[in-house]
């Protein structure tokens, strides 16, 4: 007897299998749609949250811009920290840090010499401190028009 002609309780086997297959497919489609619907709802919720967060971020960005407006920062820094726009003499570049250190050392040396008591017994001409120091300072600044 062919498998296509075999019957179970009066029904053909192939019909029973086809019906079972049909039920299985219907069930799987239903489940897929249901799960997809749930996922879609979740996606919509997340997208809504993203949108809300995006609005929140923009609001916070605007608030930051408002709080960081230069005139406000300047007022606060002047009132509470005693700060002021930086003076030119306080600006320094990494390339000239060595020159500043040298200048400070020269200044200290000059001050030290000036503070020493004059030696009365020395009649020979004293080497003026400022002249050679100035020359050193000039020579030491690279790439600068003298």
């Amino acid at each position: 007897m062919s498998v296509f002609s075999r019957k179970i309780r009066g029904f053909r086997l192939v019909d029973v299998v086809a019906a079972g297959l049909l039920v299985a497919i219907i069930l799987s489609v239903y489940l897929a749609k249901t799960i997809a619907g749930g996922e879609r709802t979740e996606i919509a919720t997340v997208e809504k949250q993203i949108e809300a967060e995006r609005d929140r971020i923009r609001l916070l960005q605007a608030e930051v811009a408002h709080l960081e407006q230069p005139s406000r920062i300047e007022q606060l820094s002047a009132a509470h920290l005693g700060m002021a726009p930086m003076a030119a003499k306080n600006e320094i570049t990494p390339e000239t840090l060595g020159d500043v250190m040298l200048a400070a050392q020269l200044k200290a040396a000059t001050a030290k010499r000036a503070a020493e008591p004059p030696k009365v017994e020395v009649a020979a001409p004293v080497e003026p401190a400022a002249k050679p120091l100035t020359q050193v300072a000039r020579v030491s600044i690279p790439g600068v028009q003298q």
Binding site: A88, D99, V144
Partner: peptide
């Protein structure tokens, strides 16, 4: 100019400071 020069990348010339 004193304040915006650094923002605009204009280097000061040390020899003329002050």
């Amino acid at each position: 100019i004193d304040r915006i020069g650094p923002f605009l990348g204009v280097d000061r010339r040390p020899e003329v400071v002050g």
